[in-house]
Design a protein around this nucleic acid. Structure first.
Lengths: 117, 117
DNA sequence: TTCGATGTTCGTGAAACATCGAACAAGTTA
DNA sequence: TAACTTGTTCGATGTTTCACGAACATCGAA
């Protein structure tokens, strides 16, 4: 369980990001993470098996969209917003706005576990 | 040779656009078309067989990124820039900027045939 | 040490995709 | 009518992706 190759900012590719965001579930995950709060795996609710969710999160990570941190046996994800903004200015913003507008990935949500702000 | 289902603006989906732009050659085609000039098939130069090029142009068209016009036996493409801007504000712009920055799709170009401005 | 929880990886299909060459269709031109 | 040009469609092939369940690894707790 120790595999987490995050690409450097400079290694993030446009086509990689586009490919990662061509799946509704992954768009949904990004939307959920768009509030810049770190989320635990377990909070993420999506209509797929956990191995499939793991796969999607890996794709997002490999594409450079998210960063994964491990703490004990559980993992946390966070959106690499600033880095993406630096690499591809305006892109994430435009995608998020479009996703909101179309309500893409609405099937993904967070369990309100850590909700006490 | 009569197949050209252009989606309405409202039918263009984000994931469709993202998927279409996850291929370097298609990004290159969009870059070439980014000057808003209509181009003939024959002008488009890409390192793939013509059937493959036809396929890529079809994907772009189906995704709503381009519009195809037929005149006699030859076809012309143009970027649906305004409509995309209306549908997904800022998206195309961000993608084009990123593509320029990374020089993605540089393998695609135009023959200077209609070049006399 | 033995559970239980949490993710990852593996093995496996089904589907989608990129690519090519060849065959086809539809105009243009000779 | 007979070429020729231009682009589409077809069939084949190999790769990638998505999906699942099962097995494995890791850590914390009993």
């Amino acid at each position: 369980m120790r595999r987490a190759h995050h690409p450097e900012v400079g290694e993030i590719t446009l086509t990689g990001v586009m490919a990662a965001l061509s799946d509704p579930i992954r768009v949904g995950l990004v939307r959920v993470l768009a509030d810049d709060r770190e989320r635990g795996w377990g909070e993420l609710q999506a209509p797929v098996a956990k191995s499939t969710l793991s796969h999607h999160l890996r794709v997002l990570r490999d594409a450079g969209l998210t960063r994964t941190r491990q703490e004990g046996t559980r993992c946390f994800v966070i959106l690499r917003r600033q880095e993406l903004q630096a690499r591809f200015p305006g892109l994430l913003q435009a995608v998020l706005a479009a996703a909101e507008d179309e309500d893409i990935g609405h099937q993904v949500s967070v369990k309100d576990a850590t909700q006490p702000a």
